[in-house]
């Protein structure tokens, strides 16, 4: 309110020629708007400093990850989709400040379970668009801050068994995922 009063009161208080006032009135909100837009752009460019690694997928991505019939996530998928960040953040503060290192909601376990392998059967990092977290986050244009510090690849000692091992649960390979994406992409178009 006070600022409105301020702008409305300007012409009287400064006894300016009306042409100047008209011009000024036009310039002020316009330039403010321009400045706001520019600063938005600027902060956005800082926030997505790593965006060069990503090229956004055209269709909703399917998570390419270690997930199987024999092993469910810690919460129903719908809950996880909506609330995974809250679980992780809560756990983060519990661990950081209270030293509670349970595994149920720990980021480490997300990473260790949702593993995507590349053609050489190596786990991919978040820079790869097939990474479990990156695929969706890129699509949703939500920047993840986790992997500036946390490793996005599974801990070597707990990497899930590779093909040939009796406990191996077949992960979806990159090729299969690409095929799946192509089919779904084709269907939706």
């Amino acid at each position: 309110m006070p600022s409105l009063l301020f702008f409305r009161a300007l012409p009287q208080s400064f006894q300016l020629k009306s042409s100047v006032v008209m011009k000024q009135k036009r310039i002020t909100p316009l330039s403010l708007f321009g400045f706001a837009m520019l600063s938005l752009l600027f902060f956005n460019s800082i926030a997505s400093a790593d965006s060069e690694y990503f090229s956004p997928p055209r269709n909703t991505p399917k998570a390419v990850a270690h997930a199987s019939e024999s092993q469910a996530c810690v919460e129903p998928i719908e809950t996880m989709r909506r609330q995974h960040m809250e679980f992780i953040k809560h756990q983060r503060d519990e661990t950081m400040h209270k030293g509670i290192r349970t595994t149920k909601y720990s980021l480490l376990e997300c990473i260790n379970c949702h593993v995507t392998y590349d053609e050489n059967q190596q786990a991919v990092s978040y820079k790869d668009e097939q990474h479990f977290c990156s695929g969706c986050h890129q699509y949703a244009a939500v920047n993840i801050d986790c992997f500036q510090c946390h490793n996005s690849k599974p801990t070597p000692s707990v990497v899930k068994p590779m093909p040939g091992h009796p406990e191996f649960i077949s992960p979806i390979t990159i090729d299969m995922a690409k095929q799946a994406q192509q089919t779904t992409g084709g269907a939706s178009e």
Partner: peptide
Amino acid sequence: VVEDQKAHAPRGKGT
């Protein structure tokens, strides 16, 4: 920039 951190010791640029 730090990459391939130990899983139990997260650390990254700028902190």
